Simulated assay, not measured.
Amino acid sequence: MLSLKQAVSWPKSMRLACAALLAVLGLALAWWAQLGGLLSRLQAAQAQENELRAAYGQAQARAGQLPQLRERRQAAAAELATLEQQLPRQQEMASLLSDINQAGLARGLQFELFKPGTPEPQAHYVAMPIAIRVRGGYHAIGAFAADLARLPRIVTMQAVILNGGKDGPPTLDAVLRAFRLPDAQEQAAMAKSKVKPSAGPLTAVPLSGFVPRDYAAGDLPDPFGAVAVHDAHTGGVAAPDLRRVREPLESVALSDMAMVGSVRQHGRLDALLQAGQRLHRIRTGQHLGHDHGVVTQIGEQALAYREVAQDANGVWRERRGSLALQVAGAGAKEKEK
């Protein structure tokens, strides 16, 4: 029987066979040790293959949607161009501020405060806050807010505070925000300061889904107690239609108008009124003045009108007056046709 202690005395062939057997066993152990690493690498490669296959499938699905994505990009570009058209340039802001003011005057509101603030540069536009305080009827204020939404430019209303007037109609305190495009200097300053996009009023609400609507609550009771019907005990009269679209001369005080002549056409006599630097041709039934004035009669030497205004108790009262011809030594201008 062979003994490892006597391995030196083994025949040479036996020793070589043992050495070969040991080498084979060593190689087998080494291969077994590496097999675990190879299996883990194989599993990782298979998982990566599955991920790549899934990514390839998603890429194929997105590639199939490429025509729709291109259409959506074109629609987004068109919508962006439309929104940019609603943003005036700096030189057009004076006209926008005038439109806001005229919107309030057209509703019979009196501006006690109209103060533009410091422009606020954002990522792609400049916001201008405007502090306002207006006094007028409750429904007129609501109609004014609806008119702002219908302006061709983007104007929003924030920080709204409505207070009931102790000695008259309620007052509205609010901050309007008008938006415009930045000029070249502002764009350079914004790029230098790296102004980041912010979720401002333009991005917080999807403007594409915004649809302005007319003020439709004029028939509801005034929560501030304005009298809307004739009251035999107080002598009040019916309230005017606060939803009516105001006429141009309703933004001008009667004290700033002057009758300078008259024109007769097709048998109808119209008055010529001077308001500022403009001459207006007025017929019976047209409105003028801040207090819902309406022309009741036109003569060659005078124009008669009727106004309706609220007193301190909120009761609508009627006033009548006239504008006499102001051209000294001149008769009425008449033209027969």
Rank of each mutant, 00 (worst) to 15 (best):
L151R: 12
G299I: 01
M157I: 09
R53N: 13
Q185G: 09
R244F: 02
E51C: 07
V263E: 06
R244Y: 04
L202S: 12
Q301A: 14
R70W: 04
G267K: 08
V175T: 15
D214E: 10
P182E: 11
L83S: 11
G57S: 14
Q286L: 02
I141L: 06
A217K: 10
V327P: 00
D311A: 07
V237G: 09
V252C: 04
V245P: 01
H124L: 11
L27S: 14
N163M: 03
C18N: 12
A330E: 11
N101Y: 07
V294Y: 02
K192C: 08
P170Y: 04
A33C: 02
L242N: 10
G314D: 06
H290L: 08
R180W: 02
E300V: 04
H124A: 15
I161G: 08
K333G: 15
A54W: 00
V227I: 09
N313Q: 15
T234C: 12
A271L: 03
Y215R: 06
L52W: 04
M128R: 07
R244G: 10
D270H: 06
S262K: 00
D222Q: 06
L202F: 03
E112L: 12
R246P: 09
L35H: 15
L97D: 09
T234S: 15
R264F: 03
G136K: 02
H230A: 15
P116T: 05
L52F: 02
G225N: 05
I141E: 13
K192T: 13
L162C: 07
H233T: 12
Q326S: 15
Q326D: 14
Q85K: 14
G289M: 01
L2S: 14
E186I: 04
H280E: 05
L4P: 13
L207C: 02
A7R: 14
R177L: 12
V160S: 14
C18E: 14
E112F: 06
P206Y: 01
G209L: 13
F210L: 12
A178Q: 01
A271I: 02
P248E: 04
E71F: 00
G136W: 00
H233Y: 01
S251W: 00
Q48Y: 02
S13T: 09
